[in-house]
Amino acid sequence: MLIRSMKYYWQSTYKIILLMNLYLLLTTGIGVATLAAGVWNTHSEGITTLGAILFILYVISIVFVSNLVVIYIAVHFYRNMYSDEAYLTHTLPVSKHHLLLSQTIIGTIHCFLTSVIMLACIFGLIYFLFTCLNSQAKEALQLTYDPGMAADLYTAFANGAFFKGLLIVFYFLLSSAHSILLAFAAVAMGQLFTRHRIIGSIICYIGLYTIIQIATSLVVIPFMGLSLFGNVSMVQLINCGLLVETLFALACCVIFYLITYYLLSRKLNLD
């Protein structure tokens, strides 16, 4: 039943997500085309300023789209689990674990793929930007380049690259699942309100998000202290930080999943 639930959930969501990703690719494509055509390769201050503004707007819009994916999945979860459609969802012979797991897996895949496409778009555009910049601009950017830090980063990654590569992919997957499960938990907690349940869900989301930010800070502060005052190398910090962040994201995923599952199975009350 898990596979069937995933199949139908995928079918009912992929079109809108695909449109969002097409937007990312299209705007990046337009950016690359204008760079390749040399539209921005000019000494005119007005055009350079316009280019910078458009680039900032581009970054903002694609970050917005990646957040929109999470919002869309959360709204879909609400409709599926708590609105009219929930009368069908909760009368299917499917366990609550399978219902929740199917939405979590598909939501995570959507979110992860969108993040990958978003990063590919940003780095792709930056790469083209560098190749198309005039020499003056390249010289200006060279001043911000720190060879020592780049070497440290390379060493941090090169040592056990395969394991670290897997860990990074796993971390990104967990981050995607974390975003999705945070939204699901907020939607489920909002249903405990007797009235204005959607507003309740938004309040719960803000509350949970704030708690997570505080908890993340508490996790990060010791590392910042070590980097400033401790005798710890950059390589060790990066390696340890990645592992701790991954474990923290995993813990958050488990907690949010259990909260949502408990509320779905023990506190379900459809209007």
Binding site: A86, Y87, H90, T91, L92, P93, V94, S95, R266, K267, L268, N269, L270
Partner: peptide
Amino acid sequence: INGLLTPTEGTILINGAAPGVESKK
């Protein structure tokens, strides 16, 4: 009966089982 609400008190059985996957079948 359909498990769309959680009872405040008491029990409900369909074919001898509480609302769940088997009752929904």
